[in-house]
Design a binder for these strands. Structure first.
Length: 604
RNA sequence: GGGGCUGUAGCUCAGCCGGAUAGAGCGACGGUUUCCUAAACCGUAGGUCGUGGGUUCGAGUCCCGCCAGCCCCGCCA
């Protein structure tokens, strides 16, 4: 309904200008325009939209706000375009103008969406790609809860942007470079040298253990620290032995990551920190050339403007360590430069989205500032850190296993699927239903993974997120199972609705004259038509929970409709019209859930 | 010490550019099944929006102070 909203806004503004020409001239002289303050109606009884623009005019015009509203409404009455869209406007409260769309307009909007694979969401062709940087686990470690949110949120944002027609580079900025590697290789040389020249000589679990040992040694053994740092320098300067060892470790981890990504149906292009190695020296040279670089205590850094640390001293971003090595800030700067640079020397992107935890906010603010001051960021480019909060357990503390370890992602997904399966089997037994084993596995997997994803996406990402299997797998409430069930109900109607195939939605005929009468039908229609605005909002604000809320509300409205209005037993033309609504609801839920990375089911 | 985020119903959370009587879900309590999957639906109860000021026609939302929790603050990422 974005198109209608835009039309209404223009009509309202024109009406305001006609009603108050002198004030309009003054406003325009100041380089501004009247703002009708058009918004969706805050309650259904107020209609479809409300315009609040009369209220702020009360003071400058010296008139009562309701009188101003009345004058605007009077002008609207003379606009045939408006009359075509809306019923008679109503003035309410202190001076709100409530607008209700003509039922036939709503019906024709529904009609238009029935044959539209994009369901009314416009395609924004964009010249330059958007980078979504997400997931980013570390080589030689297993993926754990810490990677959950970035992976799921990043994938969802990428899907939304792709659907909107943007070219999206889904980049996995894996930790495959840096001090940690020096540590690990040094340690392996001493305790398990075979791991450094033979593929899969040790399994990943062992590698993780070695990593832990290496980290422990690094933390309290100065000699080991020095050797490790030397090893990093060797690696970064291309020593063949180090490189081979590094390559083997990466391959092994990569295969392991892929298992998780396959389970989650997530597509990613790996471009780890090592990719930027050839560009690091240039970054430092470039910063030096633009006079931003300062050597402080042996380290080369850029001091930030407007950010002071201890004792009021400006905070530095260190780009080259005292030992000559580069660090993550250097890599991130190189990445920004590369992503913004024109092809073939770069990606030519104009929007960079970083999905990482909120703890890195200061780091990204610093790095973004340096990139801007270095002149690498074109005026129209957007650099966005998309932060998210911690995953917490029921106790409100960082999620851990009972023994206090970090929770591995594969274990977490396993448990979700196992619980979904146990639930399903219990229900089958209760209902005396018989199902194939393959059906049980498919439903359990789909529901379990969907529950994990949806629970994460449905809360505002900025706040910490309290992880709970019981809540996410609940069959009612704002959960994946509830939404999946709504789709299943519609699929049930389609199955019983006749011999028509379900594929392509052809079970329901689009029909010419849609006829609606029940309030539940109108409520469903109004909800269905909000999709385009919701997608636009997610694209702009990068908040997947807005899409979740919408899908949940749509499911609720549908369930009310389903409960209170017969579909298959209705007489024509209501039957076809209701079938059309069912089809559009199913398509909308499938599309929306698809954008969340969640596949739907026909039966469950 | 400096900076950031958070604080809304018993619990988990929404709340869009400042807009009408602050909304969901769960849990609690009460109801609904001859009918397309009841994994549903309907209803009731439940609030000093952390706190004190300020801005204005209007503040959960913006500004300032304070309190509480979490996170970050030079050579880890």
């Amino acid at each position: 309904m974005l198109r209608i909203a835009n039309a209404l806004e223009a009509q309202l503004r024109a009406a305001m200008q006609r009603a108050f020409p002198e004030q309009a001239a003054a406003v325009e002289a100041a380089g501004q325009r009247f703002d009708p303050q058009l918004a969706p109606a805050s309650k259904p009884e107020f209609g479809d939209f409300q315009a609040n623009g009369a209220l702020p005019l009360a003071k400058p015009l010296g008139q009562a706000p309701r009188a101003i509203a009345a004058a605007i409404v009077e002008q609207l009455a003379g606009d045939p375009g408006f009359a075509e869209l809306c019923l008679e406007p109503l003035i309410a409260g202190p001076g709100f103008i409530n607008l209700t769309l003509r039922p036939e307009r709503l019906a024709s909007e529904v009609q238009a969406r029935l044959d539209d694979p994009r369901l009314g969401v416009p395609e924004a062709g964009s010249a330059s790609p958007v980078v979504v940087d997400f997931s980013s686990p570390n080589i030689a470690k297993e993926m754990h809860v810490g990677h959950l949110r970035s992976t799921i949120i990043g994938d969802c944002l990428a899907r939304v942007l792709e659907f909107r027609g943007h070219g999206v580079l889904r980049l996995n900025h894996v930790g495959d470079w840096g001090t940690q590697f020096g540590m690990l290789i040094t340690h392996l040389k001493q305790v398990a040298p075979q791991a450094l020249d033979t593929a899969d000589a040790v399994d990943l679990g062992d590698l993780v253990a070695f990593y832990r040992q290496a980290k422990a040694r690094f933390d309290d053994d100065e000699a080991f620290q020095t050797t490790s740092r030397d090893e990093v320098v060797r690696l970064q300067s291309g020593d063949p032995v180090s490189l081979r060892a590094w390559g083997l470790l990466c391959d092994q981890s990569r295969r392991e990551f892929q298992v998780i990504y396959d389970r989650l149906d997530i597509r990613l292009q790996e471009r780890g920190e090592s990719f930027y190695n050839p560009y690091l020296a240039d970054v430092v040279a470039d910063l030096d050339g633009s006079g931003l670089l300062v050597t402080d205590d042996g380290a080369r850094c850029v001091f930030l403007e407007g950010v002071s640390g201890k004792e009021g001293k400006p905070l530095p971003v260190i780009v080259q360590k005292r030992d000559g090595g580069f660090n993550y800030a250097t890599t991130d700067l190189a990445a920004i430069r590369y992503r913004l640079a024109s092809p073939p020397a770069g990606d030519g992107a104009r929007r960079l989205i970083y999905v990482t935890d909120a703890g890195q906010a200061a780091h990204f603010a610093g790095v973004f500032q340096v990139a801007r001051r270095a002149g690498w960021v074109p005026a129209e480019a957007q650099l966005e850190h998309v932060p998210f909060g911690l995953v917490q357990g029921d106790d409100g503390k960082k999620l851990k296993t009972r023994s206090g370890d970090t929770v591995r992602l594969r274990d977490l997904l396993d448990e979700a699927v196992e619980r979904a399966e146990a639930d399903l089997r219990r229900r089958l037994a209760d209902e005396d239903r018989q199902e194939e084993e393959a059906f049980i596995q498919h439903v359990s997997t789909t529901v379990g993974i969907a529950a994990v994803k949806y629970a994460d996406l449905s809360t505002n990402r900025i706040t910490n997120y309290q992880f709970s299997f019981d809540r996410m797998l609940a069959l009612s409430g704002n959960t994946a199972p509830y939404l999946l069930y709504a789709v299943v109900r519609i699929a049930g109607i389609a199955r019983k609705g006749g011999a028509q195939a379900v594929e392509g939605g052809s079970a329901f005929t689009a029909g010419e004259g849609l006829v609606f009468s029940e309030p539940q039908e109108w409520a469903l229609i109004r909800e269905l038509l909000k999709l385009d605005a919701v997608i636009a909002e997610v694209e702009e604000e990068l908040l997947p929970n807005r899409l979740c809320s919408y899908l949940f509300e749509l499911s609720q409205v549908f369930n009310r409709f389903y409960d209170q209005v017969p579909v298959l037993k209705a007489d024509e033309p209501a039957r076809s019209s209701r079938l059309a609504l069912c089809r559009l609801t199913a398509d909308t839920l499938k599309l929306g859930l698809g954008l969340l990375g969640i596949p739907t089911l026909e039966r469950m």
